[in-house]
Computed example of a mutant assay.
Amino acid sequence: MTRIDATFARLRAEGRKAFVSYIMGGDPDQATSLAVMKGLPAAGVDIIELGMPFTDPMADGPTIQLAGQRALEAGMTMDRVLDMVRDFRAGDATTPIVLMGYYNPIYSRGVDRFLAEATEAGIDGLIVVDLPPEEDDELCIPAQKAGINFIRLATPTTDDRRLPKVLQNTSGFVYYVSITGITGAAAAQATDVGPEVARIKAKTDLPVIVGFGITTPEAARAIASVADGCVVGSAIVKDIGAGKPVAEVLANVAALAKGAHSA
Rank of each mutant, 00 (worst) to 15 (best):
A247Y: 06
L66Y: 15
P41I: 07
I214M: 06
D5E: 14
L163D: 00
L250F: 02
A202R: 04
G194W: 05
K258T: 12
T32W: 08
T191D: 14
E135L: 12
I209F: 09
D205E: 13
L11V: 08
I151H: 06
K203V: 00
A59P: 11
E138I: 15
V231D: 03
L153Y: 04
S225C: 05
D29Y: 07
T216C: 05
D5N: 13
G26W: 04
I127L: 13
A186I: 07
A74G: 10
S21E: 01
E14M: 11
V128D: 10
D5W: 14
P195R: 03
A187K: 15
G39F: 03
E248N: 12
I236C: 02
T63A: 06
P142Q: 10
A67M: 03
A187W: 15
V20H: 04
G51M: 08
V208W: 00
E120I: 14
G44Q: 00
P207H: 11
F54R: 06
D205I: 06
Y22N: 00
I209C: 08
R16T: 08
P156Q: 01
V246N: 09
D112L: 15
L115C: 05
R109M: 15
D160E: 09
G39R: 03
V20M: 09
Q189E: 15
T77Q: 01
K38E: 15
Y107V: 15
R221E: 12
I4Q: 13
V111C: 05
R10T: 12
P62S: 06
E49G: 03
E134T: 03
P164L: 00
P195C: 03
T63Q: 05
D29C: 10
L34S: 12
V128M: 08
A71T: 01
L34K: 07
A254M: 05
G181D: 02
A185S: 13
L72P: 03
D87S: 14
K258A: 13
L250G: 03
G26I: 03
I64Q: 02
K203A: 09
A219P: 05
H261W: 03
R161W: 12
F114R: 09
P105N: 11
T119D: 15
E218Q: 14
P28D: 03
S225F: 08
V45A: 02
T63D: 05
T94Q: 15
L11A: 09
G15M: 05
P28G: 02
L82N: 00
T119I: 14
T215C: 11
I106E: 11
P132T: 04
L139S: 04
D228N: 04
S21M: 00
L250S: 03
V36K: 02
T119Y: 15
A222R: 10
I47L: 00
A154R: 02
E218C: 13
L50Y: 12
D239P: 11
Y103K: 13
I214V: 10
E120S: 15
G15E: 01
K38F: 13
I200Q: 01
G61Q: 06
P28L: 02
G91Y: 03
S178W: 07
